[in-house]
């Protein structure tokens, strides 16, 4: 199998399509399947332990989002219908977060900078930095904890925060500085782009992008055409439906889980 890294654009297409699917539906069947798909794709493509931490962070964030959105119902009338409605809205938000976590874990944000047109290098760099803040912070926290553990420092609870925050912030500053210097030294954004490391569209990249577009198109058709229930009614609460065509569409989003895995 082709072991070259998958073109980042393929992952953008996948994440956008999966996010779109999550955006147009509040059916818990499709949303929970998207959680499973994200987990499956992440399991097939995660590169190292640091990325694993970042995915876990987004997973936790998604669960918190679902809980918070559901808790909002306590500001209004608490009823089964209202709670279900709030929960489904929260689940949709959480699904988008989990998809973004997978996207973060499987692709290198700095690879995206290379694809930006030359005149947009600076905004693209800012975007890439913003995208990578969460995984890099998580990785930094992990490294600081490891270092502390090796030195026999064991601090738990709230008292660990300052001991943890200072080195993490310091590291972050240092890393950003190093990155800026190295990019400057390589003439980033100043001249023509390097052709020494071309990023071809491999078969795996096409196998990731095309089914994802097909899945998004299926849900778009269902949303516009109205031939399937994308928003199950919550008053009275009924069993959610699962349209076979839309299930197949979600299955298409899981294709990246079986193709184009990087060498370990």
């Amino acid at each position: 199998m082709d072991r070259r890294p998958v073109h980042p654009m393929a992952w953008i297409v996948w994440a956008t399509s999966a996010g779109f699917v999550a955006f147009v539906t509040t059916d818990p069947v499709y949303l929970l399947l998207l959680w499973a798909v994200s987990w499956f794709v992440y399991a097939g493509h995660r590169v190292d332990a640091e990325h694993a931490r970042s995915f876990r962070l987004f997973l936790t964030g998604a669960m918190v989002a679902v809980a918070l959105r559901t808790a909002l119902v306590f500001f209004g009338t608490v009823s089964a219908a209202n709670t279900t409605f709030s929960f489904l809205e929260g689940l949709r938000l959480g699904t988008i977060l989990v998809i973004f976590g997978t996207f973060n874990a499987v692709t290198d944000p700095f690879g995206l900078v290379r694809m930006a047109p030359r005149h947009f290098h600076e905004p693209a760099l800012a975007a890439a930095l913003a995208l990578s803040i969460a995984p890099r912070t998580v990785a930094g926290v992990g490294r600081v904890r490891d270092a502390q553990r090796m030195r026999g420092i064991r601090i738990h609870g709230a008292r660990a925060l300052p001991a943890l925050a200072v080195p993490v912030l310091e590291r972050g500053m240092e890393e950003a500085h190093t990155l800026a210097e190295s990019m400057d030294a390589r003439g980033h954004g100043a001249g023509r782009r390097s052709r020494y490391r071309p990023q071809p569209w491999t078969g795996a990249a096409i196998l990731i992008a095309v089914p994802a577009i097909a899945a998004a198109a299926t849900f778009l058709a269902a949303s516009v055409g109205g031939w399937a229930v994308l928003h199950p009614q919550t008053s009275p609460i009924v069993w959610p439906e699962a349209d076979p065509l839309l299930l197949a569409g979600i299955g298409l989003l899981a294709v990246p889980g079986v193709v184009g895995r990087p060498e370990r």
Binding site: L33, V37, W39, F40, A43, A242, D243, P244, L247, G257
Partner: peptide, 21 residues
């Protein structure tokens, strides 16, 4: 409905597959 069963099987396959991986 029967669609839910298919969805359940699909979800279980994906989750289990990821765990095995």
């Amino acid at each position: 409905g029967p669609g839910l069963l298919v969805a359940l099987a699909l979800g279980a396959a994906l989750a289990g597959g990821g765990w095995l991986r």
